[in-house]
Design a protein around this nucleic acid. Structure first.
Lengths: 264, 264
DNA sequence: AGAAGGACGATTGCATACAATCACTCTGGT
DNA sequence: ACCAGAGTGATTGTATGCAATCGTCCTTCT
């Protein structure tokens, strides 16, 4: 397991903006879909002026968390639950690409073709996340696993070196996290051990294996969500749809095929 | 061909913002990658205050067109040419999903399950775009085809009813348009007739056929780009890579395997 | 001569103030 | 009773002004 250059791995630079704060509150359910959010109220809430709030709203609008009409106002957007299957399908393609590219980059790295700065920092960060997740699994508290899970996937995307893919994946992750809403802390238990295997394939520089593993991993996550939240329409992927039916037959407790859009 | 409810199809609401103007100039190459863009200069350039410029820059930053560092300034981002293949791969998944969902929605529409307002407006818009494209092809001026092409794909995505997918596709389209940069007006000639066939499958409510047609369509576009701009690494998709090699062997004129990132 | 330290200029970040626009309500008429 | 229209309040859109921060150049000490 190659992890040689060791230095104080400090985060590159991060500014906790108002946009991040609002987004977090939306995903956490503090700001419910359909709720009217005026610039003044948000400004008071986060103790800043209206200007940074406006900038945050524009950003969140282009991310799909806010619906805004000129001269009228802004509302928290509806949770895209009926897009869920499509979202997972796209996420599958995205993550498969990032995993493959990351592994290829690792191979190029070991052969000495390139040696970027960020690589080791990210690789070290992933190692830390894996260990932290293992500790939580061992301790039995699955709550933090959701966040750690997302961070690992994002870090793998960054490892691929594609800023565009990373950005798209980050947006998708936020949406999926929003879908999962609150109660979903148990999903990671089954899927957690996959991560270490995927990272292993990346380290080995085996692009196709990394891609295949990531595909299976994301797919299982997709099946888990759909079987739990019983979406109105069956999955577009026949295999996924079949797996969902099977899994729902075994545990039809949490399925709620009625609601299509969460509003307020 | 169902196209019954006819009304004045006015666009819902669009505000030509500073953000759109700047993005257009970046894609068009007026603002070159690496160029420093200060808020003051942009404010003067577009004849507004710094406040709208700031909002635009934040939005463009989250779209990946601007790299911004706090208290330092902003630069036009680098064109992600080495991501090209991955971008197309994700676009493939995205557009296949939208085409399938659009067709399913059409089927549900005809069976009377739902009847949304926007559907006919979008469907009419697509019809107009198809006719306009045909006219341009007949007249021989292929310049506007690029824009019309993008509009059709976006409209199909909107037809799918998924705002999230539409937004992601729009971001991807901008990036790919940026990749194509200036010289690429001839690409649409071969691919143009596909659109009418895809729309036909959607109208017929045949989701799988629409998905398959869209997959082939986007894939050919991907092969066309890669064979022309000869990216450093071969495509991750073996079939695509083989097709690129074959096409490059026939016309190795425009290939330039050197440059990996366009900067200034 | 080279390097460390400080001051200046430029630019961003933010707050306040004002103008433009829209939704709502109340009034008047048919 | 219902509809049309003007007025009003609330909210967004924009401009200006000031404070905070960073990069750079010059000075100064070793």
């Amino acid at each position: 397991m190659p992890l040689s250059p060791d230095e104080p791995a400090l985060p590159p630079l991060v500014r906790p903006t108002v946009q991040d704060a609002i987004r977090r509150d939306i995903i956490a359910g503090v700001l419910t879909p359909g709720a009217r959010v005026t610039e003044a109220s948000l400004a008071q809430r986060y103790d800043v002026s209206r200007v940074p709030v406006r900038e945050a709203l524009r950003g969140l609008e282009s991310e799909g968390f806010i619906d805004s009409r000129p001269h009228v106002g802004s509302r928290v957007a509806a949770i895209p639950v009926h897009d869920a299957d499509d979202l997972f399908a796209v996420r599958e393609a995205l993550e498969v690409s990032t995993a493959r590219s990351a592994a290829r980059r690792a191979a190029a790295l070991y052969s000495g073709d390139e040696s970027p700065e960020d690589w080791w920092r990210l690789r070290r960060q992933i190692a830390g996340l894996l260990d932290a997740g293992d500790a939580h699994v061992a301790a039995g508290d699955l709550d933090p696993l959701v966040g750690i899970n997302d961070q690992i996937h994002i870090a793998i995307a960054e490892l691929s070196g594609s800023a565009t893919l990373t950005r798209l994946l980050r947006q998708l992750s936020w949406k999926i996290e929003w879908l999962y809403a609150a109660d979903m802390q148990s999903r990671g238990k089954r899927l957690w051990p996959d991560h270490r295997v995927i990272v292993g394939a990346i380290d080995a520089g085996d692009g196709e294996r990394a891609a295949a593993l990531m595909a299976a991993h994301v797919r299982e996550s997709r099946i888990g969500y759909l079987s739990r939240y019983g979406i109105t329409r069956p999955s577009s992927d026949p295999e996924v749809a079949a797996a969902v039916r099977q899994q729902q037959g075994g545990a039809p407790d949490g399925a709620r095929p009625g609601a299509d859009t969460v509003g307020a």
